[in-house]
Lab assay of single mutants.
Amino acid sequence: HNLTITQGKLFFHYNPKLCLSEIHKMEEVSGTKGRQERNDIALKTNGDQASCENELLKFSYIRTSFDKILLRWEPYWPPDFRDLLGFMLFYKEAPYQNVTEFDGQDACGSNSWTVVDIDPPLRSNDPKSQNHPGWLMRGLKPWTQYAIFVKTLVTFSDERRTYGAKSDIIYVQTDATNPSVPLDPISVSNSSSQIILKWKPPSDPNGNITHYLVFWERQAEDSELFELDYCLKGLKLPSRTWSPPFESEDSQKHNQSEYEDSAGECCSCPKTDSQILKELEESSFRKTFEDYLHNVVFVPRKTSSGTGAEDPRPSRKRRSLGDVGNVTVAVPTVAAFPNTSSTSVPTSPEEHRPFEKVVNKESLVISGLRHFTGYRIELQACNQDTPEERCSVAAYVSARTMPEAKADDIVGPVTHEIFENNVVHLMWQEPKEPNGLIVLYEVSYRRYGDEELHLCVSRKHFALERGCRLRGLSPGNYSVRIRATSLAGNGSWTEPTYFYVTDYLDVPSNIA
């Protein structure tokens, strides 16, 4: 807008934040220059609390790290170098490059900038070799853009010569660093050979998330399962459950009422301010606690030095998902009996873990797994792929695949051998790939016309006998059925096997 004052003059007093240069501009645009008398524009009460600059400061050096910015700028000295009290560095987070010096300023003089007072450097006698002032900004957020400017702080001049310097606002972004852990990993099994893994992005990506790394490792069953005799009275049979499938998407929606109208769909109840505040506090606490764990609990591995020492970490090797089922080394339970199943799973520490690289999504279907087997899954978020990966501390989750139908069934015939004193040795093959492992066998036998009897055969007993022995049988026709019990439950009964026990007292003698 054009402003013209045809008559009258300007009068400025007691404006401590208004620089004289701005008042002189007002004289020019209003056409009143030359009308004012000496005392109409006070030299001592206008701009006496402001830094009124008329020179431009330029930054000469900028260096960044993930949490620091090192700045240096060209030296500046007023005509009387004693008038320079120091520099004021202003900075704040700036997602967009549209910041002005006066953003967030209120009537009390406060604003949204963080201000650092910096002492002037030592003055050199040689004007050509003056030290460049600077400042190291610490405690910054990774991968965050900051708006920065600097200006001088000078003393009051009796001659009211307006001098000083100020830089333009520059924008500097800190470097990326390792992201925080992925949030809320959930693993479920939808079949006997697959596990579905879902997660949420890290709360602090500290860069642009480029991919996720998912490692999985087959877990050995508890050692007590191999040692305890679950045929003993009072000892509860062990059981394991597989990871249940995901709930429906509708039930997972946030901010939804727990109660549904019987007449149909209901609208979600909005969260109160107290609920939102509580969630923010919980989120802040979780982030602080995660940072504490990362800094205190997890110790970084030592990389190899120039002395030739090897990095103890196993090298990563990509495998196809079809090879995942046989990740671990199978060892027989008892070496003397080769027909026992290889369900003991000690994992070799030198073995390469299978892994998958996930790009542009937060889910993965891990296939080719062994049925009813526990897996430990390790999830890392990465925001750099080359020249070397920059990934987060791992988040861990466990899951067990679903049982395989008929995996616990005894394959092959049940054979028998009759000894003296009416002892019958029953023999059968253990299931080759049971659900988890076989903890015991149930032997059901009966003599024709009598009630059915049951015998429990422990895992250890089966390994020693290759089956079991029935003792003290009365003469007669017998039928026997056997079924295995694994961590997933009972298998199917075998087809009945028949044998006849004679009275050993009636056996004919070869003595003449």
Rank of each mutant, 00 (worst) to 15 (best):
N295K: 03
S243A: 12
L464R: 14
T401S: 06
K317W: 08
E281S: 04
E282G: 07
I418H: 04
A330H: 14
P475Y: 10
T303F: 06
V334W: 12
G234K: 04
R301Q: 08
R313F: 15
Y504W: 08
E389F: 12
E227K: 06
C231V: 05
S243Y: 12
W242A: 14
L369F: 06
A484L: 05
V296N: 14
Y498D: 06
G368D: 11
T502N: 12
L364E: 15
H461L: 10
V334Q: 07
E451L: 15
L321R: 12
S363N: 06
E451S: 12
G476N: 00
S444Y: 13
R218I: 12
H461R: 12
F337W: 10
E442I: 07
A336T: 10
V296Y: 07
E433S: 15
T415N: 01
E356L: 11
D204M: 00
A395N: 06
T340V: 07
S239G: 08
S262W: 08
L225W: 09
G368C: 11
P387W: 14
K271T: 04
T210L: 08
T386N: 10
D291G: 05
P434C: 03
L280P: 14
S444D: 15
E452T: 07
S257I: 06
F419W: 15
A263D: 09
F372T: 03
E404D: 08
F355H: 13
Q252F: 08
P496L: 07
F226N: 08
S268Y: 04
V359H: 14
E249H: 07
R400D: 01
E356R: 09
R319V: 14
T497V: 08
G374I: 04
V501A: 08
A336N: 12
T340Q: 09
T415Y: 08
Q256H: 04
E281V: 06
N326L: 14
R286M: 00
D204A: 15
C267Y: 08
V457Q: 06
T373S: 09
S268N: 10
Y478R: 00
S262H: 08
L437K: 03
R390N: 04
G368V: 06
N295D: 04
N490L: 04
N295L: 03
D273L: 14
E224T: 10
C267S: 04
C231R: 05
S304I: 15
E465K: 08
F419Q: 11
L455C: 14
P349V: 03
Y396T: 07
L473A: 03
Y445N: 02
G306N: 11
G467A: 04
L470K: 01
V507M: 13
E465V: 13
E495L: 06
V334L: 14
I410L: 11
S243K: 15
I366V: 11
D506A: 08
S363C: 06
Q380H: 15
A405R: 11
S274I: 00
R481F: 04
T401H: 00
N206G: 05
D222H: 15
A394R: 11
R483L: 03
K406I: 10
H294Y: 06
G368Q: 10
E281F: 10
P244L: 13
E290A: 07
W242E: 15
H416Q: 08
P431V: 05
Y230I: 15
R286E: 06
G308A: 13
D222A: 14
P245F: 13
N422S: 12
H371F: 11
T340G: 13
T494K: 06
S257W: 10
Y504P: 10
P354R: 11
Y259N: 12
G489D: 03
E350R: 09
S251M: 11
H425N: 13
S283P: 02
N383D: 02
F499Y: 04
S320G: 15
Q275V: 06
V414E: 03
K278W: 12
V443M: 08
P475K: 10
S284C: 07
D291C: 06
D291I: 04
E290M: 02
C456A: 03
S304C: 06
S341D: 05
N326S: 14
F215L: 13
V439D: 01
E388S: 09
Y478E: 02
F499I: 15
L464S: 14
I276P: 03
S239W: 15
E378L: 09
D250I: 13
P387Y: 12
V324S: 08
A405K: 12
G368S: 10
V327L: 10
S363F: 11
F462D: 02
S305R: 13
H211L: 04
L426S: 01
P270L: 04
R313M: 02
T494S: 14
N295F: 01
L225C: 02
R286Q: 03
V359F: 10
Y292P: 02
E362S: 08
N339E: 12
P354V: 10
Y498S: 07
Y230K: 04
S320A: 14
H416S: 12
M427G: 11
L237T: 04
Y478A: 00
Y259A: 11
Y212T: 09
P245D: 09
P475A: 10
Y498A: 09
I482H: 01
L473N: 03
W493C: 00
F355Q: 04
E350G: 09
I482Q: 07
I366A: 04
E282W: 06
G264R: 12
E290G: 04
K317H: 12
F419M: 10
G325K: 13
L235W: 11
C231S: 04
V414D: 00
L237H: 15
P508W: 11
V334P: 11
A484E: 10
L487V: 07
S320I: 14
A309Q: 12
